[in-house]
Design a protein around this nucleic acid. Structure first.
Lengths: 298, 298
DNA sequence: CCGGTCTTTTCACTGGGTGAAAATCCTCTT
DNA sequence: AAGAGGATTTTCACCCAGTGAAAAGACCGG
């Protein structure tokens, strides 16, 4: 498995999920974090050698770091010696304002919405060029869903994504288009998941921006319609997006809009947002997306 | 804002939540993690100086570390300069088997239980000498709840806690009693939250162990009854506890038992547990509580 | 019984980490 | 407006924590 042939350098094409060959001069902390970054949805348990190989660290180094992480509780060790993300990390992460933070405030409203419609209700925030699913309510009788809580969703092709993208500065769109054409340049790896031409996307976003709602129809896993609206924080910026996903040809989309909108408004209010008299939204900042201080006790 | 009067030490007995005066010789990683550990439920946003002071690190050091953490996404910076736990950390933490892991599997069953009863449904796991609340479903019309998702609950005085405690080895109880009398020795700080005498607790646990159910009555926030049962993992060990909390004098407790039990069984089965013909449970290991490998794809 | 892999320990070298001190930057106070 | 008191940030020379090659164990499966 992935033997290092004597002499032959490791083929760089074997993209380690962090891309960092761990050049000397990398701070310890960064190395340690890169270890954490190796865990993914489909690789929830990793052995020491996997970790050290993927993160590009010497086994001895990886071991030392992993030990500290384990001791502290950021990682836990399975009986078979592999490591998984630890509960302690989960606890602290649950203090993330943009994670469980908004969730905590939004949950009751999500529940109301769910209660009434009995369909999937999603809450997502933006992180870089993706949307991250913060929470999801769905009865088992509803249509299947493609995304997992904690997982990432593309911005341009999902309803929540479009809302978040529309509310961000134009630089983000640039970045997104750039990385997209870039991935096109590469030997046609991905079968291209129904991405829109740039011009079309711009149009869609303008429309979302103007109407305050994104509607996305999908056929792939099953025929569904998603309706998403923005959630505003205390400073007026868009903090998250709320959406509902219903089987197509069930309730017509336009009937859902007021429902979703009302819920989003209620949540925004809870977050301290003072709705301005139907003016245009304010743009949120580019990438590092500063957060508003809001309700954080000293 | 919390001024340090010159001369007068901070009144709280200066207890830095991590107790580590950061002696020289402490590994960087540990120091960095101790920074993360400073964030708590009521201190979700911390300034650099607070962090450096509480973690006992030189400001320059704290700054360097916090920068790395922020760059990576473990922390995020607010507009006012304070730091909060970052979404990236939340994402990775969502891969924790004992956090979102069990939650993911258990959620549908929790929902069923909730659907039928319309009362609080709790899911908790044990971490050290506490229980950690993994998830909670509750309509707004139900009685108020004392605990937050991601927060800690005491083992001896809560129903889920008793289930988890009963399933752990006797060493844990020892440890618990030790730290309890210890805190008693200290100038009567806490008003002692209805703790049971050791002997009594032992009896309760024996009973829980034997019956497979913990029932706890409470008056304090409001009159409630909690009924909890264990959830077993693939190796037979108790992985989590499920409970329902109802207002007292509503449904009699004994009617709830079968419901909760059924749900817990269903979840256990989903986790790969093969119920043995009504034998005694197996003890789970002491503190480091090794996890069973279970369904983790390589 | 033997090669192959993964995990852990050792150990001498060195550069990333350290923290005191000073320079800025803010925010109240006088 | 000056300035006192913090908080944040930058510098810098010292040095110990971190490093990684190598070897020793542990653990396979053949």
């Amino acid at each position: 498995m992935e033997a290092d042939m004597a002499g032959a350098g490791r083929q760089t094409a074997a993209a380690p999920s962090d891309a960092a060959p761990a050049l000397p001069g990398t701070p310890v902390l960064v190395r340690a974090l890169s270890l954490l970054a190796q865990f993914t949805e489909q690789r929830r348990a990793l052995s020491l050698s996997e970790l050290s190989r993927q993160a590009g660290l010497a086994p001895a180094t990886a071991l030392r770091l992993v030990r500290h992480l384990t001791e502290w509780g950021a990682l836990e060790r399975l009986e078979d010696g592999r490591y998984v993300v630890g509960l302690r990390l989960w606890e602290i992460a649950s203090l993330s304002p943009r994670g469980h933070g908004v969730r905590q405030i939004a949950l009751p409203y999500l529940e109301d919405l769910y209660e009434v419609t009995r369909h999937h209700v999603l809450l997502a925030v933006r992180e870089g060029t993706d949307a991250v699913l913060i929470d999801r309510l769905s009865s088992r009788t509803a249509t299947e869903v493609a995304y997992r809580v904690g997982g990432r969703m593309p911005l341009p092709t999902t309803a929540v994504g479009q809302v978040l993208l529309a509310s961000a500065g134009p630089e983000l769109l640039q970045e997104l288009l750039a990385q997209h054409t870039e991935s096109h340049a590469v030997a046609g790896g991905v079968p291209d998941s129904g991405s829109l031409p740039a011009a079309r996307l711009r149009g869609v976003l303008a429309n979302v921006r103007q109407s305050g709602v994104a509607v996305v129809r999908r056929d792939r896993p099953s025929r569904t319609v998603s309706v998403a609206t923005p959630i505003h924080g205390a400073d007026g910026g868009v903090v998250a997006a709320l959406s509902i996903v219903v089987p197509d040809a069930q309730t017509p989309a336009h009937e859902l809009v007021p429902l979703v909108r009302a819920a989003a408004r209620a949540i925004s209010r809870s977050l301290g947002y003072q709705a301005k008299a139907s003016g245009a939204w304010r743009h949120t900042q580019p990438h590092p997306q500063p957060l508003e201080p809001g309700h954080f006790p000293a």
